Amino acid sequence: SLAPDMGVTSFYSDYVLPIAHHYERHDLMLQSRIPYLQVLSEAVPPLGESVDDWEANKRLAAAISKRAKERGIAPIKDAVDGRTVRRDYTKTLELYTMGGRVNNSKDVAQFIINSSHGIPKISFDELSVKGIVKVNGVNNTMWDTEESPFHSEIARSVMKKHPYETITGRQQFYIDHEWFIEFGEVLPTYKPPLSIKGYPLRMMMGHARHGVHSMWRDDSLLLSLQRGEPDIYVNPDDAIDRRVVDGDMIRIFNSAGEFFAMAHVSSGIQPGMLFMYHGWDPKMFKNEKNFGEVIATAGLIKPTSMAGDYGHLGYRPLAFAPNQTYKDFTCDFEKSV
């Protein structure tokens, strides 16, 4: 794994390459929710032997090319998304660096600036001084003009009256795809979530408030702004029924498994419901088992998400992520002994 810390991914890896953290690298940040291009310049040098992701992959590419030449490995045919491609491992480094034109992460950032539509043409060094610049065509919204680096087909259809990317070219709710017909979902349809018999509480989850996904969830400063360890929100009435008070360690369980967390009693949680922010590293839980232990449906995929060849419905590998029935389960909790 290429990781900035010894998190759970690293513990599952045979080899761990130390990667520079967020403020130890040069990079760009461009997000369609904000009309700015922001620089990420190296505030402090990387610790120890760590390097940024691009440099680590460059070194791997160099090693692959060197070894392929030494062994005289000829080009091979491979398949990607149904397309046949030719792979010459002796040229891995040459391809990765674009023939030597790109040699570090600053070069990559400059290439993105120079070649991307809607981004002001500015040097990375100048951008590092300014810190942030406004992208083109976004005086009022992110989708103002053709000069914007972002485009939304829906916004274009509404504002410029282009046909929608549906099979009818119009706003469409009725879908007569054979799979939708089979599942009784030709129109937006409510279907009650799955439940596990004997376990009355439905558990929901949300994005972490004191971190980004799993990053910084174990940071001491951010932990000081919260309970300092994995906690789960429970309704006061549900807590009373189970003789649990705020701060107790509780066992959350169902027929699939169990995990332990601190009870966070809150009247903001409805009766019959549990709520937990995600992103906690399994190492922070008792026995290194987190909420995934009770999610019996985490690997299931909704079949209609795989439908294709129907206007806007078109599953493509690496371009569309089918919805998972992630919260279709129930559980219960009790005070940990």
Score class of each variant (00 low, 15 high):
26 H>T: 11
40 L>I: 15
8 V>I: 11
85 V>R: 02
24 E>I: 13
49 E>M: 10
96 Y>H: 04
103 N>S: 13
72 G>S: 09
29 M>V: 12
114 N>A: 05
22 H>F: 15
28 L>K: 07
38 Q>T: 15
21 H>E: 13
111 F>L: 14
22 H>L: 15
41 S>M: 04
96 Y>V: 10
92 T>K: 01
93 L>F: 03
69 K>V: 07
102 V>Y: 03
6 M>N: 05
45 P>H: 01
107 D>R: 03
81 D>Y: 01
7 G>D: 09
5 D>K: 08
60 L>Y: 03
94 E>A: 15
60 L>F: 06
22 H>T: 15
63 A>K: 14
103 N>E: 09
16 V>Y: 03
58 K>E: 01
36 Y>K: 14
106 K>P: 01
6 M>C: 12
110 Q>D: 08
88 D>C: 02
48 G>C: 06
44 V>T: 09
74 A>W: 04
11 F>C: 09
59 R>N: 12
76 I>E: 06
59 R>G: 02
76 I>Q: 10
37 L>F: 10
25 R>P: 03
76 I>R: 10
27 D>N: 12
93 L>Y: 10
66 K>W: 07
88 D>V: 05
46 P>H: 05
65 S>A: 08
19 I>W: 01
67 R>A: 00
16 V>M: 06
32 S>G: 04
12 Y>F: 10
46 P>L: 11
66 K>H: 05
